[in-house]
Lab assay of single mutants.
Amino acid sequence: MQRVNMIMAESPGLITICLLGYLLSAECTVFLDHENANKILNRPKRYNSGKLEEFVQGNLERECMEEKCSFEEAREVFENTERTTEFWKQYVDGDQCESNPCLNGGSCKDDINSYECWCPFGFEGKNCELDVTCNIKNGRCEQFCKNSADNKVVCSCTEGYRLAENQKSCEPAVPFPCGRVSVSQTSKLTRAETVFPDVDYVNSTEAETILDNITQSTQSFNDFTRVVGGEDAKPGQFPWQVVLNGKVDAFCGGSIVNEKWIVTAAHCVETGVKITVVAGEHNIEETEHTEQKRNVIRIIPHHNYNAAINKYNHDIALLELDEPLVLNSYVTPICIADKEYTNIFLKFGSGYVSGWGRVFHKGRSALVLQYLRVPLVDRATCLRSTKFTIYNNMFCAGFHEGGRDSCQGDSGGPHVTEVEGTSFLTGIISWGEECAMKGKYGIYTKVSRYVNWIKEKTKLT
């Protein structure tokens, strides 16, 4: 034993070699072989497995989906700052455009905790909710729209109204504003409101030439003092309507412009014939205590009207009353817009006519005020429907199939267009061939041609 100890002390290297040989010859039971080890760690190889990531292109799944990435790591994937920024906006807080917040056709661009709407022409605001041009839906104005110097929408209202708090709607500024039905039992019968379409306001006024200088022999019209197929109006439903009495009662109609003036057809009036105007009328054979009678003290036909040349060209006249009318729910003026808007309103496509005229061709006159909704007829169809001249200051309205029309005794009465609950004068009943005849239409004086003249002559002093 002493000898062994001496050998170990003198030859430590020998001992180490012996131990190493023993270990190498022993069977290893701690580690699995290569094949079995792979069965336990069965993990798919990654895209760049075996390579240094710093030297390969980034992978979106590896960089940002398996674990949260930084902007720089995302930049490695896209290799483009702009594309990385677009991805980053949604990656950080989701897609803010998912709810489609942009209105009126706006395009949404996502941002971090926010979004941006790219608005089409005519709109602005956070969600493109603000109209900035009158060309689109009248700028959301209830009545009139004008573009300011910086191309912003400025709404306005006709006389007797003021802008509401929203700067879009119009509200009454006087007790009985024009064009409004205020009798409670008839307010439910107000005709369907007309909503502004998209309009090209630059070209809204037709490029028409008034044929002022045409000389033409007097034409022989049949029954051209021209509501057939209409309905009984309720008291106060058309408070701007008046009836004219002269040699015979209810020979023509008219509309209240203001307390002192009536507008009617020029062919209705004769110099030297006494005319009485009755406002607030409903049943011409009954006294309903809503009527107001006034005498006409002055007749002003349009300066281009000449019955000797043509009885229905420039067929418009103004009547001055001896005493002002007292405005109330049964006696209310009709609204008159400017030339541009009167023309736009007419193009809405349908209007209402009213009167006490004959209820059928050569038949009896109506006792109760009649009204009828009539569609506008395109000019080409209008011209083809008659052998008589249709001037540019006239328009056609009615039904091709016949059966409904204005008729004798309705002449001078109103053709009105309702705009968001307020009625505007767009025409004056003038003439036609018979009444409600198939293929024939009622012919009306186009008020847009005469609004400046009306307003100039009827100013209240």
Rank of each mutant, 00 (worst) to 15 (best):
D378E: 11
G230H: 12
E10Q: 07
W88D: 15
M8L: 11
H400F: 10
K387C: 03
H289F: 11
K234V: 12
P414Q: 11
S184T: 08
E61C: 03
Q90R: 09
N104C: 00
E79R: 09
V419F: 12
K440D: 14
D223F: 10
N166G: 04
F360V: 10
W118L: 15
L425V: 00
K438D: 14
F395T: 02
L14E: 02
S365F: 07
D405A: 08
G351H: 05
A317Q: 01
V278G: 03
P239T: 02
C155E: 01
T389I: 12
S448N: 05
A307D: 06
E320T: 01
A317L: 02
L325H: 02
D198N: 12
C134P: 02
H302Q: 03
C134K: 02
N213L: 07
E208P: 11
R226K: 10
R364H: 10
E82Q: 15
G246C: 03
D150S: 10
V263M: 03
F348S: 14
V242K: 00
K362T: 10
R373V: 07
F238M: 10
T445Y: 04
S11F: 14
N203E: 10
V331A: 07
M8E: 09
R449S: 12
R83K: 09
S354C: 09
S350V: 10
L376P: 04
T426G: 00
G402W: 14
R364D: 13
G229T: 05
C155T: 00
R404Y: 15
E288M: 06
R449C: 11
C407G: 04
A173L: 08
V56Q: 14
T186E: 12
K293G: 03
N80Q: 10
D232T: 13
C407S: 04
R140A: 08
D410G: 06
T389R: 15
T194W: 12
P333I: 00
A173N: 08
G409T: 06
A397N: 01
L346C: 02
I299S: 13
A37D: 01
K457T: 13
T209N: 13
D378N: 15
D322Q: 06
F78G: 15
C170W: 01
C396I: 02
E67R: 04
G160V: 00
S99E: 07
V199K: 12
E82L: 05
S365G: 06
A337P: 03
C119S: 01
D223H: 12
L372N: 12
N80L: 05
S406K: 13
D410S: 09
Q241I: 11
E124S: 06
G58C: 03
S156T: 11
L318G: 00
W431C: 14
I284H: 06
Y47C: 04
L41H: 15
T342N: 03
F348V: 14
S184Q: 06
E231V: 11
A337L: 01
Y371D: 03
C108S: 00
A265W: 02
Q241Y: 10
M394A: 08
F121C: 05
G409I: 08
A436G: 14
C335A: 00
D322C: 02
L383C: 06
N59G: 11
A317R: 00
I390Q: 09
F196W: 13
E270R: 11
G105R: 04
T29V: 15
D232P: 12
Y22M: 13
W240K: 01
P12T: 14
L211F: 13
Y352E: 03
D95N: 14
E171D: 10
V92G: 15
H361W: 08
Q185F: 12
L189S: 11
G357Q: 14
I112C: 03
T389D: 09
E72G: 12
Q216C: 06
T426A: 00
R62E: 03
S220M: 07
K347S: 14
G427Q: 01
V419I: 13
W261E: 00
L103G: 05
E61H: 15
M394Q: 11
G413Q: 07
L318H: 01
Q90L: 08
V451Q: 03
N258K: 02
L346V: 07
N258R: 02
G125V: 01
K45M: 14
L52D: 08
G160D: 07
S220F: 09
G21I: 15
R62S: 04
D315T: 02
Q167I: 05
G236Q: 04
R298G: 05
S329C: 05
L211P: 09
E320V: 00
K247D: 13
K260R: 08
C252Q: 00
G351E: 01
N138S: 03
L376C: 02
Y201E: 14
V263S: 01
P235I: 09
T186K: 12
K68P: 05
E434A: 14
V228A: 14
C18E: 02
I40M: 13
K234I: 10
A250T: 09
C170F: 01
Q185I: 11
C141G: 00
Q90T: 08
N213A: 08
T417C: 04
G106T: 01
F424V: 00
I454K: 00
V195N: 12
L52M: 15
K438T: 13
T332Y: 04
Y330F: 14
L103Q: 14
L325I: 03
P197I: 06
E159I: 08
E320K: 03
Q408F: 14
N306Q: 09
A173V: 12
S430N: 10
I334C: 02
G179N: 02
F144K: 02
L32P: 06
K339G: 08
D95W: 05
R75N: 15
R373L: 06
C157N: 00
C268S: 00
M65T: 15
